[in-house]
Design a protein around this nucleic acid. Structure first.
Lengths: 240, 240
DNA sequence: CCGCGGCCGGATGTATACAGTGTGTTCCGT
DNA sequence: ACGGAACACACTGTATACATCCGGCCGCGG
């Protein structure tokens, strides 16, 4: 029993939009890793038949966000600590090289937008873990988008989306990392200064520390910890 | 009018298999970049209805191999010289770091398989451009697979598949590069020696020279050259 | 002669209906 | 009471049929 999006669409939703909402649902842990996705249920929520819904799932499968097993259906991709480590390695390979493109293309309005996101992060209270995680994701994504490198961005986004459910779980476990605000400020400063080296170095350091934190955390919770309760799961988990 | 696969399947083909055949068809330029894909036609060829075929197309769309435009349909992804350059940059970021994993995991049987591929390449005559390109692709893919890094491999494969139609076009234009055989021999030697540094260096050099050759070639043929005739296209292109 | 608007063929996109399959349960036998 | 097999349900997977939309052709008017 999960809630993805009960909004009634004005016109019939297209598979691309459904895929977008599903991506967000996976990132935000409305659909958790390992969870089987009931096609009838999801199709009803989106107000379409199973055909366009299945096409959206296939798109996500192509991006690696879900796996479709014949006769079983789609399941949200599960990652272990080793895979998370690998994915952070990919971010380290993919994102820092974008620095020179980012500083070359960033405009004043782009910087303003980033500062706006950062301001919204700073103004959040302690309780808004969801909003905090959403804005942090948005910040990183926007920075990468500034590079204007289409294919790099495609891959980076795929990796970000795969990591995000676990990153968000980590945030829920230990709370938001307030020192990241200063990291983000340094990123903006480097872009404004046009200093690709500084930006690259800042991205590397941020990614390495994030990798260390998240992978250690993931290793310690060795797969069979009941994480659902920590997220305020309201299942009737009674044993009958 | 194109020929992908007329083989009659023993049992009904599943979308994953269809996607695999479509990937190969794109790589081998049986479906060329920019080409609109007629769903009825393809579905008939694979012996299925349009539903599973469309799902296969969505998977490829998730991987970036095709783009689906609403109301228009699927079109094989087209790349310009700048994008090819970017994609080779991605290979340079993604593949060389796999070297240490490759030398750590490669077994004797893996080396034998690579040598077998190389032997088949060496034994090819001048005319077998298709076979040559297939084996070269296979060699690079197998090397990457040896790393055993699932997610890196996913991304590398996506990039390889995107590049391959253009790489193959280049091969058709200038013929196979026989010096690549010695490159491949060096790769095998580095793996056998367990020398990750040498393997990494060899990969970097090979990728950089391939990038230079292909991007220059792609830049010179500025989009509107009639490339079809060079590939032995047998269209009735008469204006009558 | 050229430009434009409405029709028409064809292809895409989707809902419905049905076939196939995996899963959980129940009932029987031991 | 326990193990196993068969049933039943539910869900996935796909074919058919229909609505929708794009593109080209023809005919009209300037």
């Amino acid at each position: 029993m999960y809630t993805v999006c009960s909004v009634k669409p004005r016109s019939r939703m297209r598979p691309d939009e459904i895929a977008g909402l599903l991506r967000r649902a996976v990132r935000e842990r409305l659909l958790v890793p390992g969870q089987p996705l009931n096609q009838d249920e999801l199709a009803k929520r989106f107000g379409v038949s199973r055909i366009p819904l299945r096409e959206a799932l296939r798109t996500l499968a192509g991006e690696g966000l879900v796996v479709m097993r014949p006769g079983i259906g789609a399941v949200v991709t599960e990652l272990d600590a080793e895979e998370l480590n690998e994915l952070y390695g990919l971010r380290l390979q993919l994102e820092p090289p974008l620095a020179e493109w980012i500083v070359a293309r960033a405009r004043a309005e782009d910087l303003e937008e980033l500062e706006g996101i950062l301001a919204r992060i700073s103004s959040l209270g302690e309780g808004n873990l969801e909003a905090w995680a959403n804005l942090d994701y948005l910040f990183h994504r926007r920075v990468a988008e500034l590079s204007g490198r289409r294919h790099s961005l495609r891959l980076v986004t795929q990796v970000l989306n795969l990591i995000e459910p676990y990153s968000r779980l980590y945030v829920h476990l230990v709370g938001p990392e307030h020192h990241l605000v200063s990291e983000h400020e340094e990123v903006i400063a480097a872009i404004r200064a046009g200093d690709a080296r500084a930006l690259e170095a800042r991205m590397v350091r941020g990614l390495e520390s994030a990798r260390r934190r998240l992978v250690e955390s993931a290793s310690s919770m060795d797969e069979d910890v009941d994480l659902v309760s920590l997220l305020g799961g309201d299942e009737d988990a009674g044993t009958g």
